[in-house]
């Protein structure tokens, strides 16, 4: 089971819940599963080409998936996937 952390901006899609358990073998599969379970995620976090939107960061545990294999990064049971708005800091 993968724990997915949902930012406040997307909690309208999960009925206010900040953490959702999901299954999947890769980051992309987990996020697509999230959209299947809570319709609306895909159009908010993916761009027209199916990649992550420019201002969406996704972290697998502590690491930005852009430093890993992006949406193809494998995930294993017990890991946490966090969706975090990129516009922060500085």
């Amino acid at each position: 089971m993968i724990k997915v952390r949902i930012p406040a901006q997307l909690r309208t899609l999960t009925g206010g819940v900040g953490e959702v358990p999901m299954e999947g073998a890769t980051v992309g599969e987990v996020l697509k599963g999230l959209d299947a379970a809570h319709a609306g995620f895909a159009e908010r976090i993916f761009d027209a080409d199916g990649g992550l939107r420019r201002f969406v960061n996704v972290f697998l545990d502590e690491e930005d998936v852009r430093f890993l294999d992006g949406l193809g990064t494998p995930v294993t049971d017990g890991q946490t996937l966090s969706i975090v708005p990129a516009v922060a800091g500085g």
Binding site: P7, G18, E62, S82, P85, V87
Partner: peptide, 29 residues
């Protein structure tokens, strides 16, 4: 214990959990 980018991610996540705090470079950025 991490880089600034780690701190930044933590604060971006904290903003969702502590909406009553004004993170100057997050929710009032």
């Amino acid at each position: 214990q991490g880089s600034y980018d780690d701190v930044n991610r933590l604060c971006a996540e904290l903003t969702s959990e502590q909406p009553e705090w004004a993170f100057v470079n997050v929710n009032v950025r």
